[in-house]
Simulated scan of single mutants.
Amino acid sequence: MDREAVREVFLPRREDCLEYLRKIRWKEGVKCPYCGSLKIWADGYTRKGARKYECRECGRYFNDLTGTIFDRHHFPIEEMFYILKEMEAKSTLQISRELGRDYESVLRFVREVHERASGYARGISLEGVVEVDEVYVHAGKKGERRAGRGRRRGLRKRGRGTWEGDKPPVLTLVKREEPKVRFCVMKNLRGVKRKLKEWIGGEVVLNTDEYGIYRGIAEEIEKVKEHRVVSHRQGEWARGEAHVNGCENRNGFLRAFLRKYRGVSKTYLQGYLDFLSLLLNERGGWLAFLLSDHLRT
């Protein structure tokens, strides 16, 4: 897409972006991000158009962007809103080209968004009826170069893969009642029971396929009150309430989401999947979440 068209037609107005940020962030009144006081003086505007404030309690200065994902980045706020919106459907390289911006600069902003999404994903605790399934993703060392050779790409092997073989396993965990999904990149699957024990917050009814890594899990993890197993090898996809169809559904979203990047580094794969988790779990509200929660102070 022509970058001038992006700037003239598709970029939001700066004033609208700032007004939306204020509405989300200060919905209970302007509050000092350092001491929490509501005794605030308005004190002009920054060069980016953000309002400046002075706290009457602690005497510190801040503005609308202080502590948010927009803080400490040189892009105009309308461009950062554009990046957030387009991250759902476009690669970082494509967005940087559309904006006419340095790829590494855009990537740094994207990675900060991923960090916020990772904080969200780590807060998902498993309880109730839970499905667990594994999927294998082609992910090598994209972006890393070795002397005299191009970057390493994930191998195109069929079937189950390994971290070392550039096809790391990903656990897909779905809470049926809410429903919410969490994706977890694994170095190997030998430690799956130990990881599940960490993630389970309450009593669960666990649904898996017949893969041997889940065998005996109800005996080893006290909070697993029932373990339902479906045998895909025998063509069994559901038996009453025993199935992992929710995981299969989310795995479809995962594959489609990663396809647009034409390769993702396995080093940063978890961040991409945490962002996808946020998109799927907070449909229509993920942007507000990024703006209002986990503010850096």
Rank of each mutant, 00 (worst) to 15 (best):
G123R: 07
E19C: 06
K193P: 02
V181H: 04
V129F: 12
E8W: 03
V6M: 09
Y103Q: 09
G148I: 08
P168M: 07
L254R: 02
G201C: 07
R116G: 09
I40D: 11
F62Y: 08
V170D: 03
V244N: 02
L173H: 01
E248C: 03
I24L: 15
P33N: 06
R3P: 11
N207F: 00
G123A: 06
A288K: 15
V174E: 06
D102F: 05
T208L: 12
L269V: 05
F109L: 09
V229D: 01
S105N: 15
A5L: 13
N188W: 08
H227T: 03
G148C: 09
L171C: 06
G143M: 08
G212P: 13
E54H: 09
G36P: 12
G67E: 12
T68D: 11
D133K: 06
S96T: 02
K141D: 05
D64N: 05
G44L: 08
H232E: 10
F62L: 10
R146W: 14
S96C: 05
A256K: 14
W199T: 07
I213F: 11
E8P: 00
G161C: 12
E203C: 09
S96M: 07
H232I: 07
E248P: 00
K260P: 01
N188Y: 08
W286R: 11
N249S: 13
L280S: 01
M87T: 01
D293H: 12
G123N: 11
G271I: 03
R97E: 14
S125G: 12
G154A: 11
H232R: 13
A139L: 10
H114D: 07
E15M: 02
A42D: 04
R22N: 04
G285C: 05
I77F: 15
D209S: 04
R51S: 09
C17D: 01
A121R: 15
A50M: 05
S91K: 04
K167E: 11
G44F: 02
W237D: 03
H232S: 09
V229R: 09
D274I: 03
N249E: 08
R13K: 15
Y45R: 14
G252C: 02
I217S: 01
Y136I: 07
R259D: 07
R250S: 05
R153E: 12
R22V: 05
A218C: 07
G150A: 13
E220W: 01
E15P: 04
D71I: 03
Y45V: 08
T46F: 04
T92L: 11
K225N: 06
K141F: 13
R122D: 15
L269S: 06
G44K: 04
D64E: 14
E88V: 10
T297R: 13
R156E: 13
R60P: 02
R122H: 12
L258E: 02
L126F: 09
K142L: 15
L206M: 11
V264K: 05
R190E: 14
T162I: 08
H138N: 10
R158Q: 13
R108D: 04
S292F: 02
F257K: 03
P33A: 00
F75W: 06
T172Y: 09
D43Q: 06
N281A: 10
L93P: 00
E78C: 03
I213L: 10
E28I: 02
R7C: 05
G36F: 12
Y261V: 03
